[in-house]
């Protein structure tokens, strides 16, 4: 069966360059969890190339590589943000494993191409579970995005300003031209109710 390499067993296959950055890895994950552009850039620099190579070699294009990598990053990001988070392998291993699974899934969906001969030299870990949870949660996310797109303006901008961009009520009142923050708040409440209605109605019909 698949090798389940914990952190310590993966140490044996590490190159020197990688051994001393256990602490760096934690810092990187912390940075990722807090949207730090430097950390994210570094993760890209260290990992993107391998995954891009893998995908291009397996019948994908640069565009696919971007998609898949972002998806894998989102999964790692959400993992890094959770309280109970513990990554028991290298970021590199994790990202590669997830990206590989995502790409295989996509290719299998297309059915036509079979890839029995991808020679992977990178080690991988089982990530099936993480991916499943992610896909499930993504459905909720899609519903929310769809609901947002349905409520129309100015509700959409108003809610985005408050809930997504986290602006304060006075700021919003100012930006949208309400005479005071309380009026903006009432309007926001009405909009939120509409969004909620749409979101939950989709939710119910989906099930």
């Amino acid at each position: 069966m698949k090798k389940n390499l914990g952190y310590f067993s993966s140490l044996t296959v590490l190159t020197d360059r990688q051994v001393d950055n256990f602490n760096d890895e934690r810092a990187l994950l912390k940075g990722l969890a807090s949207h730090d552009p430097h950390a994210i850039e570094l993760i890209y620099r260290q990992n993107y190339g391998v995954i891009e190579g893998f995908i291009i070699k397996n019948n994908g294009f640069a565009e696919d590589a971007r998609d898949v990598f972002q998806e894998a990053m989102v999964i790692l990001f959400e993992k890094a943000q959770s309280d109970s988070f513990e990554l028991n392998c290298l970021i590199k291993t994790y990202l590669f494993s997830v990206s590989r699974r995502i790409w295989l899934k996509r290719v299998q969906k297309n059915k036509k191409t079979y890839l029995p001969e991808m020679d992977i030299l990178e080690e991988t870990i089982p990530v099936e579970e993480d991916l499943e949870t992610h896909l499930k949660r993504n459905e909720d996310l899609d519903l929310m995005e769809a609901a947002m797109n349905k409520i129309g303006e100015p509700c959409k901008s108003l809610l985005e300003a408050f809930y997504l961009q986290k602006k304060s009520m006075p700021e919003i009142a100012d930006q949208f031209g309400y005479t005071n923050a309380d009026n903006a708040k009432t309007q926001k409440y009405k909009c939120l109710n509409r969004l909620k209605k749409i979101f939950f109605s989709q939710y119910k019909t989906e099930e």
Binding site: I40, G49, V74, L141, L143, M144, Y163, L164
Partner: peptide
């Protein structure tokens, strides 16, 4: 759900900026 959307949108924004930068550099 809203919060999650907000976090992921923000992450995607940062990633897009990073990708643009690396693309200009020729790293990707």
């Amino acid at each position: 759900q809203l919060d999650r959307l907000s976090r992921i949108q923000k992450l995607r924004q940062v990633m897009n900026t990073v990708e643009d930068k690396l693309e200009v550099e020729g790293a990707i």
